[in-house]
Amino acid sequence: MLLIDCPYCGPRPEIEFTYGGEAHRARPADPAALSDEEWAGYLYLRRNPKGRHAERWRHAHGCGRFFNALRDTVSDAFLATYRVNETPPPPTIGPEAAA
């Protein structure tokens, strides 16, 4: 079973977690000033990269908290997890950095 390292509880089985979409998306400060295309971009468009991806996850059946994770979308490996008020770890972690 895949273990996910909750920044509060430590490594826990994946069945305790739910996925929360792409991380670090800031809501525009003044939505009324945006064009329809810009607003639709904020609402609907996501990066969907192949490889390293910063995501929100929630330890729904644990401490209940949202946190962020760096996950490789090809291998499904979790490279790092961190709290929402923390900056993402530098891109020197994970198998690519070691290579």
Partner: peptide
């Protein structure tokens, strides 16, 4: 102590 899942029940 912890909240968790036991046989699909929280």
């Amino acid at each position: 102590c912890t909240r968790t899942v036991l046989a699909r029940a929280e």
